[in-house]
Design a protein around this nucleic acid. Structure first.
Lengths: 146, 146
DNA sequence: ATAATATTATTGCATATGCAACGAATTCAC
DNA sequence: GTGAATTCGTTGCATATGCAATAATATTAT
């Protein structure tokens, strides 16, 4: 079986490693807030963004959190159906939809944030003094992405 | 609108940042080898693993590359249909399916590897001296995942 | 040896996703 | 100002995904 393949070290291959870790984190987190509150990851991201910046549009969120506009749109609709946010056509530009959390949405988010913070704390414990270098490397990559 | 939310810095939130970067890398890579050869990411991973270790089972791959067994199974079936690998029931344990690349599969993989390497090179250029610290941090996280 | 339990790969099915297409609104070119 | 081109959000549709259920085989306990 003469296998004429060039060397390749998957274990050190960055796209692969990042995917594995990122999937793991997402799954772990999803377990926590999905099990408890029935949210998908896109819904969680939209909720979070609208919570911290009022009157975001679908497009704003797409840019800010790298979430496809169709995902944003559908997540927003689900959140609206559940009564956590409202959609309102913008006065300045009637193509835009302004998203805002309802009171219920704010209450929910206030409950979810601590779960996210706890997870970040766990990660900080695991990483120790490697957290800062990791963040710096991610800064570099993100800067290059745009 | 008295917004009683705890502080939360999404821009520094690790699960979010890793997801964004990992999605970006996967999409970039997918553009390259999907556009050119019509492969999904799970197919690519299976191809790669089977290429470098003969007679892997679905379960082996699931463990090695954190790919759900149903994904592995379907990816393997597609690769088989395209003539890039073969399935064979194991003699020792007839529940297991041994996956092996065909000659065509080896040839294909030999073409795909350089694309992957080029991408890693780009990433290395972007990261510069931050690559090693990044890999160390990923080592730490991966060690904790198991 | 037998029965209960566990493991493996596949499949069915409900849901999620990606991408193109669309209608509505705006901006641009001239 | 008019028509072309662009932007925005939604939706349709084909495909992908996640998870439970299944059939086939192995392992374990008694």
């Amino acid at each position: 079986m003469p296998n004429a393949l060039p060397n390749f070290d998957l274990e050190r291959y960055l796209p692969y490693r990042l995917t594995v870790i990122s999937d793991w984190m997402s799954t772990e987190l999803a377990k926590q807030y999905k099990m408890k509150h029935g949210f998908s990851m896109p819904e969680w991201r939209v909720l979070l963004n609208v919570g911290y910046t009022q009157d975001l549009s679908v497009r704003d969120i797409e840019k800010r959190v790298s979430l496809e506009k169709s995902k944003v749109s559908r997540a927003a609709s689900k959140l609206e159906a559940k009564g956590y946010l409202t959609k309102k056509v913008s006065d300045h530009d009637r193509r835009l939809v302004k998203l805002s959390l309802t009171e219920r949405g704010v209450e929910l988010l206030a409950k979810l944030i601590p779960i996210a913070e706890d997870f970040q704390s766990e990660l900080s414990n695991i990483l120790g003094d490697q957290k800062a270098p990791l963040q710096r490397a991610l800064d570099r990559l993100l800067a290059e992405m745009n």
